[in-house]
């Protein structure tokens, strides 16, 4: 279908307006991050020079090198653990028949819908009782639990899309389920696994409430939590704050820029299909 020139221009203008609106707050942060300290405060103005020193200050003195490392460790742990557990559970739901399947399906569905806000309080008391608050474990396990339902449904959908005839043939050849899963299904599901890993990494990296509740010692602080504390301490040092914010957003944004198709497709598919 062809569209007229005027219509095309209108479309570009509209998209342009919204694109600018989407970028403005983020550009503001970038701009503030390279503004020398003490020069101007919140407004949009071109800095007299590009001061990259803010990043170094936030990285070293602000402790963000450490916070980022914490975040990275938690993300790696959550992605790895969620992937393994989801692959196993997704395989059971996709290919095996067992009594109670329907009930268990709803149990996972419940895990998908119950928000962290509604159970983080007892979770805190339980983990404190086990001496796990103020450790990475208090972030790793709950965040895995929160991603698991999604991961399981994601893997179930992926495995069910696999041609049944191939599986049947392998089974007739005497292949055990274990072999089917790890030798045939998982290797063929690599793109879906990558997308799932990306989404879980995104959610885990950005999580705020859980570390806020579980972590009180600076040693275990994750990046978003570090920023919130920074915010409270240095309200007037906007350049430093902006530099810290940039450092936190950057890893995910860079990943996103390279793999945006995957991110968007994953989030939309995850939303639409489950």
């Amino acid at each position: 279908m062809r569209i007229s020139r005027a219509e095309a221009v209108l479309n570009y203008v509209l998209l342009g307006v919204f694109a600018v609106a989407a970028l403005t707050p983020l550009v503001g942060v970038l701009l503030a991050a390279v503004t020398p300290q003490g020069e101007g405060r919140y407004g949009f103005q071109l800095p007299s020079r590009i001061a990259l020193g803010n990043f170094a200050t936030a990285w070293r003195d602000g402790g963000f090198s450490h916070y980022l490392l914490s975040s990275a460790l938690v993300v790696l742990g959550v992605v790895a653990l969620t992937t393994v557990l989801s692959v196993l559970a997704g395989f059971a739901f996709a290919t095996l028949r067992f009594p109670g399947r329907r009930v268990l399906f709803y149990v996972f569905l419940l895990g998908l819908m119950v928000p962290l806000e509604s159970f983080v309080i007892p979770l805190y008391y339980t983990l404190r009782g086990w001496g796990l608050t103020d450790t990475y474990w208090s972030l790793l396990f709950p965040q895995t639990a929160q991603s698991l339902a999604f991961g399981t449904f994601w893997m179930r959908t992926t495995f069910r899309a696999f041609p049944v005839s191939v599986l049947e043939a392998a089974r007739l050849d005497g292949a055990a389920d274990r072999v089917l899963l790890w030798r045939i299904l998982v290797p063929s599901a690599r793109p879906a696994l990558t997308t799932m890993g990306l989404l879980i990494a995104l959610w885990t990296w950005n999580e705020f409430l859980l570390p806020l509740v579980m972590i009180s010692s600076e040693t275990w602080r994750t990046a978003p939590l570090g920023l919130a504390f920074f915010q409270g301490q240095f309200t007037t040092q906007t350049s430093l704050l902006a530099a810290a914010a940039t450092i936190i957003a950057l890893p995910i944004v860079v990943l996103y820029l390279f793999l945006q198709r995957r991110f968007i497709a994953g989030m939309l598919a995850g939303a639409v299909k489950g």
Partner: peptide, 17 residues
């Protein structure tokens, strides 16, 4: 890609900006 960007930035960073 640009319009979707706010979805991937951490809420704490969004709040700061």
């Amino acid at each position: 890609a640009v319009l979707f960007l706010p979805q991937v930035v951490a809420s704490v960073v969004v709040a700061t900006s």
